[in-house]
Simulated assay, not measured.
Amino acid sequence: MIRSDATFDGTFPFAPRFTHAPGFQMHYADEGPRGGEVVLCLHGEPTWGYLFRHLIPVLSQTHRVVVPDHMGFGKSQTPADRSYWLQDHLDNLEAFVVALDLTNISLVLHDFGGPVGMGLAARHPDRIRRIISANGPTPFGQKDLLDRLTANALVSPWFQWIARAEASGELEPVLGQLGFNILSTLKLNGFEDNTVITDAWLSAYGTPFARPADCLGAIGWARGFAISAHRFETPDATADRAIRGKPALAIWGEADRTLLAEHFLPLFSAIFPAAPVKRLAGVGHYCLEDAPETIAGLIAEFIRQT
């Protein structure tokens, strides 16, 4: 866990806030007017709220931007007695949202934040205003979800490595040293703009994983796929109907080597057939690192228009 006051040379200057609502110390940033519509940004593997550091100042001028760190990531606690499957993170997020009484939420979803956020939408459709996928899958009860996950895993270097590493017993030892191999892990998943790599940037992404005991979150999300432990939330008919009527936007870096557009954009379009899809050439999986200004502009304009 990172020190609560760490700003990484001022690149993450947002006041740290904490809640114990999910049963552990969960960190979040909360910027912008309290009376404004909420933008809830959800990160994935193996990042934290730092991923949204360029988006927060843009959107917080007019909206309340809330950015939690999932259990085992960023400045949040990594309890040793908890499991780290998808459904656990969804339970945590639900407790967080209810405790803060967040409503009128525009979800911004990246990577694993996609299924966590869509799970929240399935449980609380009345709290959701918009859905924004930024290289974030949007599973929502689609019948072909398993087929798409399987097809993607056959060609994704990250998912291929997960399968081999779990079978050979290497997954936990390797990801248990994530603080030392964070750059190779991020590059394997796919980001393209090497100019962002500074000492502060490496420290921001590596410090949360200083010891094997700090890596349970990253291990859990990877292992959950290898052993099929993750459970995707399925909406009931009322939630399905409600969410399909929400404004939605997909932004996808086409150089994503982990979640290929051909397998995951159809999941989005199956729910939101009339929604705009912005495909960004040369932008990788960590699209908010590769093209932060472009993505901030697209999201701000989409929120303004809707």
Rank of each mutant, 00 (worst) to 15 (best):
T185E: 13
G282M: 04
G224H: 03
L259G: 01
G220R: 03
G245Q: 14
F180T: 15
N181Y: 06
F272H: 05
R257K: 12
S184W: 03
D214I: 02
L175V: 05
Q177H: 15
L259F: 14
R257G: 07
R223I: 01
K187Y: 00
R241D: 13
R223H: 02
A213D: 13
F268Q: 03
G176L: 05
D193K: 11
T238E: 14
T258P: 08
I271H: 12
A275M: 12
F191S: 08
T258G: 01
F180S: 15
I197V: 15
T185L: 10
W201I: 08
E293Q: 14
V277A: 12
I251N: 02
A250N: 11
Q177M: 13
G176T: 03
G297S: 02
I197M: 08
V196K: 11
A275S: 12
Y286P: 06
S228G: 02
L188A: 12
R231M: 08
R211G: 00
A200I: 08
G190P: 07
A213H: 02
N189T: 14
L249I: 04
R211N: 10
E254A: 13
R257Y: 06
D214L: 04
D290T: 02
L183D: 04
F264V: 00
R241N: 11
L280K: 01
E192N: 14
G253H: 07
T198Q: 09
T185S: 14
P208L: 02
F225S: 10
Y205T: 00
G217S: 05
F232E: 10
V174N: 11
I271C: 12
W201P: 01
A250G: 06
W221N: 09
G190I: 06
S203F: 07
S184T: 12
L259D: 01
I251V: 15
P273D: 02
P235H: 05
H263N: 12
S203A: 15
L183V: 07
G206Y: 03
T185N: 13
R241A: 15
F264K: 00
A213W: 00
F225N: 13
D193E: 13
W221T: 14
P212W: 00
A261Y: 09
D199Y: 10
F268D: 03
G179H: 01
V174R: 14
R231C: 04
G179K: 06
C287Q: 14
G282V: 08
G179L: 06
E289Y: 12
A248N: 12
E289G: 00
L216R: 15
E233P: 01
R223E: 10
D240H: 12
P273A: 05
N189L: 15
I295F: 11
S184F: 01
G206N: 03
L188E: 13
E233R: 14
H263F: 10
L216E: 07
R231L: 07
H263C: 09
I251Y: 04
I197R: 01
D236H: 05
E293R: 14
G190L: 02
A281W: 08
T238F: 11
L267W: 11
I182R: 07
I197K: 09
T198I: 06
D256I: 00
R241T: 14
I243P: 00
L186E: 01
F232T: 11
R244Q: 10
G190Q: 09
